[in-house]
Design a protein around this nucleic acid. Structure first.
Lengths: 224, 224
DNA sequence: ATAAGTATGTCAAATTTGTGAAACCATACT
DNA sequence: AGTATGGTTTCACAAATTTGACATACTTAT
């Protein structure tokens, strides 16, 4: 199995090295960012970051801001490193959806333990997750889609698109929204490519293809 | 921007005051109810309550009952205040769709933080709210309109127009106002075009079409 | 009665979507 | 390296839908 990617964001290289060494020893793959902007860039470029370790105090863009930007698109677990445990900060972090706090100075062992606990928790939740909706079943972990119990062969993008539809069943999705979520957020191609993929998806889904409704002037919707 | 309304339900006035003061300080508008009946009344009278803080132990109608009655019609977020964290109660609340638990005694700061977290979550999630008015139901997220529970097919503009009517039910709307809100603000076409759309809407709404009243010399109004 | 406002049916123009083919691109295989 | 393969994107045109204007009929207020 692949090693899980962890993004470590801190402006101090010494701190990054400390954390990285420990995480690598514990069989994680580590990516580093030295400021908030870099962090956001890397996060949206690589789409398979499993967890983020984020320092609060940073130049340019602080940890809270990074958190907000990422939370606008993703539920990836975030661990915040704070200088001291300050109630106000914790409250702000809670609102932003921070999963865990660790105040400096901390023991690397504790950090690894918390990371593993969080990953165990979130993987457990998402692993056995089979999304289903009206005869469509999507198993994200297995990257497999079933229609009425029978597997259909989908390409990568088709699968991602179907997953996005199932996750947002019943909701009208604009092409812009689909592009931002299924494609990379910095994709600047033609939005009509969605039409092509929808067409293929529909045909591969056979009779269930009708479940993807066109909403004229808006986009598409998977019928509930 | 308007302040969000929060309904605080507790039989102890001291507790209500405590919560209210804190919420007002945090820029919420607070409505109070001292028992379950009042709570339900107020909730259905005011139609724009953003969240409910609900005490479990109350005379007349307890928190669970209030929760059930409200959940029958609305998905408004509910935070339950419990005397002690009791596992059985938490399970019951989970089934009833309680969003969050806070056990007394609690820190007002935590309460505010949780409220804001929930509001952010639900507001961002999608405005999955369903506007309804006399047999008309409009689901903005799904881009779907129901008349007496049955879906009617509307074009983009028709849907926007109906939504605008429902959002401003009972209010006389001039053509100019409608143009500015449903059409782009830089639309300089003929205001008579609204008549055409109103006509189509009325016909698609069947018997409920009468609910859109003509106000001679002014514009239109959706009857409450 | 008359003038001003509104309802309704029709229709051409504009917009949006469906579709198939072709171009492009990355990857694995010979 | 060259080639085959399959996925992805673009493009052009056809098909479908929406939309706003207009003409005519109708209603209301004075």
């Amino acid at each position: 199995m692949d090693r899980l990617k962890i993004l470590v964001v801190d402006d101090e290289s010494r701190m990054r090295k400390l954390v990285r060494d420990f995480l690598v020893k514990n069989n994680f793959e580590v990516l580093e960012a030295e400021d908030g902007e870099q962090a956001v860039d890397i996060f949206f470029q690589k789409k398979d970051i499993a967890l983020i370790v984020l320092d609060v105090m940073m130049p340019k863009m602080d940890g809270w801001q990074v958190c907000r930007e990422i939370r606008a698109y993703s539920k990836v677990p975030i661990i915040m490193l704070t200088a001291k445990s300050d109630e106000r900060d914790e409250l702000q972090g809670f609102e932003l959806g921070v999963d865990e706090y660790i105040s400096k100075p901390f023991s690397p062992k504790i950090l690894v333990a918390r990371i593993e606990a969080i990953l165990r928790r979130t993987n457990q939740m998402e692993n056995n997750e089979i999304l289903s909706c009206g005869g469509i079943e999507v198993n994200k972990a297995a990257h497999q889609a079933l229609i009425d119990g029978e597997e259909i062969e989908l390409s990568y993008k088709e699968f991602e698109l179907l997953t996005y539809f199932v996750e947002n069943r019943g909701i009208a999705l604009s092409r812009e929204k689909i592009l931002n979520n299924v494609w990379n957020y910095d994709y600047f191609g033609d939005a009509r490519t969605i039409d092509t993929h929808v067409k293929k998806l529909r045909s591969k889904m056979g009779s269930k293809g009708d479940m993807i409704k066109t909403i004229w002037g808006v986009g598409y919707k998977l019928e509930e």
